[in-house]
């Protein structure tokens, strides 16, 4: 191995070659990974505005759970709910197969990643719920007494 490399000049040159190789491989890795693992980050309203153009593509959508719409079927392990964003104009009907996270039904923010179907249902592959009140307590938990 050492003998094989000795033709390539000084150690500095060899290290720079290694540097170039690592950077090239890294760029290639990042490029492939970004193509396969990236999705556009939208709010519910922004996705709704895209209309039919959004169907069939991967998206990451943020919004809040509409508390009353949550339907959890433990037997089928399917979670169905609506989400909307702060503007509240549009609702997105989401179907997620997987365990229901705790603390799901309080209207706290979440992010879903998945694809939009032609019937307007969002098939979520991944669902992330914020861990509650790490830095901010929810408002209105204490009440003033006159």
């Amino acid at each position: 191995m050492v003998a094989g490399l000795s033709g390539l000049g000084s150690p500095r040159v060899r290290l720079w070659i290694a540097f170039g190789a690592v950077v090239l491989v890294l760029c290639w890795l990042i490029r492939t990974a970004v193509i396969h693992a990236s999705s556009y980050y939208l709010t519910v309203d922004e996705l709704a505005k895209k209309g039919q153009a959004a169907v069939g593509k991967p998206w990451t959508v943020s919004g809040t759970v509409v508390g009353r719409s949550v339907r959890w079927s433990p037997a089928r392990e399917t979670l169905v709910f609506d989400m909307q964003d702060e503007s509240g104009h549009a609702k997105l009907h989401v179907v997620f197969r997987g365990p229901k996270p705790d603390d799901f039904d309080r209207g706290w923010p979440l992010v879903v990643t998945g694809t939009l179907r032609a019937d307007g249902t969002f098939n979520a592959q991944q669902l992330l719920v914020k861990c509650p009140s790490k830095y901010e307590a929810k408002s209105g938990t204490y009440t003033a007494v006159n």
Binding site: L26, A33, V34, H36, A37, Y40, Y41, T60, Q126
Partner: peptide
């Protein structure tokens, strides 16, 4: 002008 995110798969792959 569009917000793009990567999933855990990106970090793992690289």
């Amino acid at each position: 002008g569009r917000s793009l995110t990567v999933s855990a798969a990106f970090y793992n792959a690289v």
